[in-house]
Design a protein around this nucleic acid. Structure first.
Lengths: 127, 127
DNA sequence: CTTAAAACAGTAATCATTACTGATTTGTTC
DNA sequence: GAACAAATCAGTAATGATTACTGTTTTAAG
């Protein structure tokens, strides 16, 4: 009755990604899960993240300070990246008018769209 | 009357970036200029690209296969990235409704906006 | 329980980018 | 146009994220 299920570690990696909204890096996922799963390997986290990306279970949303940040929420929405603290915030999809018309533009076949705002977040402005 | 001018190599690096629409990587700039300037160093290209980014003369537009791609055209427009060949194309700004309203959203101060479409380009579809 | 395939840990390798150091160029002042 | 200080550079070493590799462990099914 299994057969199509994920291995225990694979499932935990996906759960960890899906259960946070900080748009984590691979290293964050590794360090966070490492507490529960001491024999976790960083390579395993990378391998599974790549797998999830291929399967469309997660999406890469930004590259912050050389690290790729991913999102377990694959619904249409935009992101705000703070240049100061590196935090990645969700921005409601209403602010991101993704036009499906562009799919036929110049023969391009658009698979997904990424809209990202870069600037300074409220927390960093206040300080 | 000089004083604020760029060094010869710095100017050539900027000219090279500004004169192409392929949205080059640092390595492309290096290899392209290397033909004219045999004693050019890759470190110099990176250092000047970072300088130009700080000065707003160029903007980073995408990260393709681990390489940052830059654009010497700083006017508002979007980009299409082909997942197959890695080419980066300009998409007219009319397709990218960048809302300045988001600047005050949740205390965020937006400096710049990046809208990128990912998919397969016409050339790669045809083949 | 066996067994083959998939997944994994641990480590080494790769590759883009950055840092460092001593030499060269630039702009300025005479 | 020589001299000098600051900026820039070449070349190389270092860093750090990501990927590849190998031998071991887990998984799912018979």
């Amino acid at each position: 009755m299994s057969g199509q299920n994920f291995s225990k570690k694979r499932q935990m990696i996906l759960d960890t990604i899906k259960s946070t909204d900080i748009h984590p890096s691979a290293k964050w996922v590794y360090e966070t899960l490492k507490e529960q799963v001491p024999d976790l390997s960083l390579g395993t986290v990378y391998r599974n993240i790549n797998l999830f990306k291929e399967q469309g279970l997660i999406i890469p949303v930004a590259n912050v300070d050389g690290e790729e940040r991913i999102d377990g929420d694959t619904s249409a929405h935009a992101h705000f990246v703070c240049k100061e603290c590196g935090c990645v915030y969700d921005v409601p999809a209403t602010h991101a008018p993704i036009s499906e018309e562009t799919c036929t533009l110049d023969g391009f076949c658009t698979h997904n769209t990424v809209l990202t705002y870069y600037g300074i977040c409220g927390a960093c402005t206040t300080i």
